[in-house]
Simulated scan of single mutants.
Amino acid sequence: MNTEALLARLRDELAEGGLRGSFLVRDLGSGREIGIEPDLEFATASLVKVPLVAVTQDRIRRGELDGAQQVEVQPGRAENAGPTGLARFRHPARVALDDLMYLASAISDSAAADALFALTSPAEVARTVREWGITGISVRHSLSELNDTPLERFDATEAHLAHSLAIGAVTEGRGHPVRQLDVSRASSGSARAFADLLTALWTPSKIDPDTSARVRQLMGENLLRQRLAPDFASDSAKWSSKTGTLVNLRHEIGVVEHSDGQAFAVAALTESRVPAAIQPEAEILMARVARALRDHLRARG
């Protein structure tokens, strides 16, 4: 199948499944790429933890921070199924910076990420990423704000109403009355921007090699593997990634490294038009689209 026919088929599949997405797959060896609306911006939710961890690690490398430094984290008051990790602790805990980075990456622990943001502000993370030559990724707020939207006011039995509000209120310019979903006010980015970040972490770039190596290791230890991992991880391929989820947004970025030496950056950012909180079929569809793009690029390479 030629490229245009494939892209038309995949766009139809996304539309039928109630998804709109920004997808990009890039061959890290040749630089060749294929995508669907790769420059479409989304609020990025927990994807922001990748630049946060990268900048934190670089500050440790430069001696500005100490990875062994203990940070006291107060117990959270999580009352819903969203937060994981430290937010569910009942007692104060002292955690080293190195371990906070692991928790933020491996289980998407937002309380751990906010402990890191307390030491390196969103503005500093954004500035450093720009200095690395990566544009298109904004970092505007802490992770705690993601659990403090008007949508949290709905009872669990009314999740469909929260999703209907999120779906129906978005504007053509990607604005939204809920600031965490508004690309001009929330941390945001596109598939291309995050593919650029992955490229900089996996190939020689302005990012220090030791910093990149640590971030690759952390992304390889990600335990949230229900989304794209089933279509990319295998005995002959390593999948390193980070997910991001907020209301009707489901994202994942990662790199698949094949045993033959080929490696591909994969970025899939999506929003659903289906008013339901649990949508395993959306996870399956976005993975199938990303896999089809990778397969096409790999076959033509």
Rank of each mutant, 00 (worst) to 15 (best):
L269V: 06
L24M: 09
T157N: 14
D210P: 04
D155Q: 14
Q70Y: 06
E158K: 15
G136L: 00
H160P: 10
S234I: 04
N147V: 10
A265G: 05
L19N: 03
V255T: 01
E145I: 04
A162W: 10
E158L: 15
R298H: 08
S272K: 09
L100R: 11
I137W: 06
D295C: 02
R94C: 11
L119N: 02
E16G: 13
D58V: 04
G67Q: 04
P280E: 14
V266M: 09
L143G: 03
A106K: 02
W239P: 04
K242Q: 07
A93R: 03
E4Q: 14
G31M: 11
R94Y: 06
R298S: 06
E221K: 13
D260M: 10
T171G: 12
G136F: 01
E4S: 14
T203P: 02
L100W: 00
S205N: 09
G18E: 08
F89C: 12
V266R: 07
P92D: 07
A104Q: 05
A166I: 03
E72H: 05
V53N: 08
G189C: 06
E131H: 12
V48D: 08
A195K: 10
G67S: 01
L165A: 04
S205E: 10
I60V: 13
R11D: 13
D295W: 00
V50D: 06
S108H: 01
